[in-house]
Design a protein around this nucleic acid. Structure first.
Length: 850
RNA sequence: GCCGGAGUGGCGGAACGGCAGACGCAGCCGACUUAAAAUCGGCCGCCCGAAAGGGCCUGAGGGUUCGACUCCCUCCUCCGGUACCA
């Protein structure tokens, strides 16, 4: 482009060109080591800011920017408050997608993962984020995952790990399948199309249910209420009773076998008209009458192929089969039929229920379908004989037991207790608590994970790998043979070992750890990623943890965030740390949804690559745009519409700082104060605007309301623009406002503010120092005060006028002024208000007439 | 299904129970320009009206209140999670 035209000579200021600014400052910051944290500094208050480490799917997409760049703004905001901020980053490098890519493209998962990490490091740096790269952790690194193995061995010693059999979704060709790998209502394998079966496998568990009650305690944690609610419901503590039924003798069965049920409603025991066993219940086979056996086993087989979600659906029509056997109700000796039905789960409670159709929705639906009796045993006074058209669940305080033998007439809650007490005396029941939470299954039949350090020996059984033999390394060569089956299982060199105890030939465990194991302690390792001999550096852990602020996606509300809490408690209990909780303050931001309306992920092919956006607008604009698009905890669909507006905002800031005295030929009023506005008044209102903005923006940063924070900075910018080129431009109030604007914007748009800051310093002949090393400014309370305010006046709740009054007016004076306003008089039409409401602080007046 | 969240102009969104629509996008008008872009200024929820002004409006339906986007009840739609995606 030629530079000799009239146009270019008219150009007064250099244009804002992020491409020439951003890489320069990023390099400078790196050279100065501005964001490397001195972990041993005990002078300044610490601020451990953690963001969920990304999975290296291949590219950093706009969703990563959405998580990370506001987190970086938080880091910079805290640095400006004099805190020693630690913001580390790493990669959650094990997991299924690497294996899928490896099978598809015939490459090694490690190569695929490491290549992706290299690319992502470059992209992460382009955000201008202040990560301390010296602390990076990669979970697939043997120096990291050896400690997963070590932790497991300690937990095993402490009795916190155990082995048990449980079913997995199984494809004959591809082995164990994840939920997302099972497709269609007929449940076939995504890769080969084969019908998915259940297969029982012996697998490793961590005893996290030990911590169920402790996990319900969130005291001392500043976590969002919805997340606490989800975890609480996930843990699902239920108080009730365990009641022992006995099987009744019949032609095929001698009777007398114990059938334990858990119920939250022992008060309804007299209303039990049948029993239901889960298809997985061990007594199903024994109790089934010979003539029912083919029907029952067909049903059990069918149930095994249903998902839990399907089974628990209250929408689905109830199914089940009678076993042809009865149970005896311990409270009244009554014989009731036993069914098997899939709405009862094997893994919850005792895997068996007493069914009380009158007082449980699912039991009611089942009773309707199978024509079973419904017997009401709880009723509010007067309702005893009212017929039921559905289960009666409501817990009115005046409910009484009815038709319940000696307990009739007792209040429901009291009756329940009395029934459990009485049964306990004869060994037929006890008060009990169950949880929905299950122990953590950590075994995965996958190659790309950390091997579980166990050896199976015919002579010695289960033998832990000796600690000095850690890490058990993943073999580098992988033979997938085009299927998803775990190749470790047929890797002879890996599997065949000698028993550490007896020296006989033995076999290695070929399952690997769940990747949630990796993410359950990575923030401890950030503090000493190179440490040999121990997973953590205790002194630094004591100094820096628990994490002060954690940020990450809300999709992790129950799994990762619960596992991390459990792991921390297990570490505490084996004496490794002295803390109960890992993350003091949590913020779960929403997710960026792709154009197809789904969460952005490489596998869906709906990711938006920010590289070309960065090339076009610069990182600062992308950062701001993502913060501006809405509340951070809400996320939303991605659309680049509006990005230009944010870019324009930065251009306006640029113009304000570098060209205070310029005017625009397009604006006739430019460069003049409004009629009747004095310079002193203009300066006063500018300072007031700047300090009110500072007050609000500070609060918005603290509460992560970045969208409104930017809206307020835009308003201040618009106010400054109105005074650009006027006699107050470049004056003290102007300079103060511009300075505040840059400081407030610095955490969010670090490059352009650094550039403008350095130019201001140069223009004043001051030596350079980074804006990011500046101290956050303080609000001048006297500047904030305004002399008058506008009070809305309503008549019967409808807005009729706005009255300008002095700010310090009393409610009585306000009422007088309001009544005198002509528009108010007109709206009242001669009527006298029946009531005058002056809303708190005189914010609004409502006159009630008629 | 269950648990959690969200529904506000053409669009993204703002609003301690107190002026609904801040801020921005798009659109329209004007200025600057030979022109376009960029830039600057103005208008901009819907309906009636030339205007002044009036009426209506926060997913649907009820309720509480002087007053409801906000609180309560019932329902609809979308998003996240539902234990082997991370």
């Amino acid at each position: 482009m030629t530079q000799t035209s009239d146009r270019s000579e008219r150009t007064r200021t250099e244009r804002y060109e992020p491409a020439s600014i951003e890489p320069r400052w990023q390099q400078r910051w790196a050279e100065l080591g501005l964001y490397r944290t001195d972990l041993h500094d005990k002078e300044r208050p610490r601020f451990y800011l953690l963001t969920m480490y990304p999975y290296p799917s291949g590219d950093i997409h706009i969703g990563h920017w959405y998580i990370i760049t506001p987190t970086d703004a938080i880091a910079r905001f805290h640095r400006m408050h004099g805190e020693n901020v630690f913001l580390p980053i790493g990669f959650d490098a094990f997991g299924l997608p690497a294996e899928n890519a490896a099978i598809k493209n015939n490459i090694n998962p490690r190569d695929w993962t490491m290549h992706n990490i290299d690319n992502m490091r470059r992209q992460l740096r382009s955000m201008g984020a202040t990560f301390d790269w010296e602390s990076e952790v990669v979970s697939a690194d043997p120096d990291y995952y050896r400690w997963n193995q070590w932790f497991f061995l300690q937990f095993l010693k402490a009795g916190l790990a155990y082995r048990a059999t449980s079913p997995v979704d199984w494809c004959p060709n591809d082995g164990t399948l994840a939920r997302e790998q099972v497709e269609g209502v007929d449940r076939h394998c995504w890769r080969c199309g084969a019908k998915v079966e259940k297969r029982n496998l012996a697998q490793w568990y961590l005893k996290v249910t030990n911590y169920a009650d402790e996990l319900l305690d969130f005291s001392g944690l500043q976590w969002p209420e919805p997340i606490k609610a989800q975890q609480t419901n996930w843990i699902g503590r239920s108080e009730g009773g365990e009641i022992v039924f006995e099987t009744a003798p019949s032609s095929h069965h001698g009777g007398g076998a114990e059938l334990r049920v858990f119920t939250t409603r022992p008060d309804t025991l007299f209303g039990a008209t049948f029993m239901v066993l889960a298809p997985e219940h061990p007594l199903v086979v024994d109790l089934t009458a010979p003539d029912r056996s083919s029907k029952v086993s067909a049903y059990v087989a069918q149930a095994a192929n249903r998902t839990e979600i399907d089974r628990l659906s209250t929408d689905r029509e109830k199914t089940g089969v009678a076993l042809g056997a009865d149970a005896i109700n311990p409270v009244n000796g009554e014989r009731i039929p036993i069914f098997v039905a899939d709405y009862v789960l094997g893994g919850y409670g005792t895997g068996a229920i007493m069914a009380v159709p009158a007082h449980d929705e699912r039991d009611y639906a089942f009773a309707e379908k199978f024509g079973l009796p419904v017997r009401r045993v709880v009723a509010a006074p007067g309702d005893e004989d009212r017929p039921l058209d559905g289960a009666y669940i409501a817990h009115a305080s005046d409910e009484r037991l009815v038709d319940s033998g000696p307990y009739t007439g007792l209040a429901a809650a009291e009756g329940g207790k009395a029934i459990v007490d009485a049964l306990e005396k004869v060994g037929k029941g006890r008060a009990a608590i169950t949880y929905r939470l299950r122990d953590w299954l950590i075994s995965r039949q996958r190659y790309w994970g950390a091997p579980i350090p166990i050896i199976y020996c015919d002579r010695d059984g289960i033998v832990p790998v000796p600690e000095e033999d850690l890490p058990v390394r993943l073999p580098d060569t992988v033979d997938y043979r085009g299927s998803g089956e775990n190749p470790l299982a047929r890797d002879e060199a890996f599997v065949n070992v000698t028993c550490p105890t007896c020296g006989d030939p033995a076999r290695r465990e070929t399952d690997t750890f769940d990747t949630f194991v990796d993410s359950s302690w990575y923030w401890f390792r950030y503090l000493s990623p190179e440490k040999a001999g121990a997973p953590i550096e205790r002194a630094l852990v004591d100094q820096w943890t628990p994490v002060d602020q954690y940020t990450g996606g809300s999709e992790h509300a129950v799994m990762h965030l619960l596992y991390a809490r459990e792991w921390t408690k297990m570490m505490r209990d084996i004496g490794l740390v002295n803390q109960d909780e890992p993350f003091t303050r949590l913020f779960n931001q929403g997710q960026i949804i792709g154009l197809d309306g789904a969460r952005m992920s490489k596998s869906r092919g709906n990711v938006v690559d920010p590289d070309d956006l960065v090339a076009r607008y610069g990182a600062d604009t992308i950062r701001l745009f993502l913060m501006f698009m809405g509340p951070w905890d809400q996320g939303g669909p991605w659309s680049p519409n509006g990005i230009g507006g944010v870019h324009r905002f930065l251009n306006r800031v640029w113009t304000l700082v570098l060209d205070a005295h310029g005017t625009d030929p397009g604006d006739k009023e430019a460069g003049r104060l409004a009629d009747g506005e004095t310079a002193a008044a203009a300066e006063g209102s500018l300072r007031s605007a700047a300090h009110r903005t500072l007050r609000d923006v500070t609060a918005d940063y603290e509460s992560f309301h970045f969208n409104t924070m930017l809206a307020k900075l835009m308003e201040l910018t618009n106010a400054l623009f109105r005074y650009r080129g006027t006699e107050i431009a470049g004056g003290a109030a102007w300079e103060e406002s511009v300075r505040l604007l840059l400081l407030m914007l610095a955490p969010a748009a670090p490059h352009v503010t650094e550039e403008l800051w350095s130019r201001r310093l140069r223009a004043r002949g001051t030596s350079w120092s980074s804006i990011h090393g500046e101290t956050w400014p303080e609000v001048d309370a006297t500047a904030v005060v305004e002399a008058t305010r506008e009070v809305p006046v309503q008549v019967n709740g409808k807005l009729r006028d706005l009255v300008v009054v002095p700010s310090d007016i009393s409610d009585a004076e306000l009422e007088l002024l309001v009544m005198a306003a002509p528009k108010v008089q007109a709206a009242l039409a001669g009527q006298t208000p029946r009531r005058v409401i002056v809303a708190g602080g005189g914010r609004l007046v409502n006159l009630v007439v008629g």
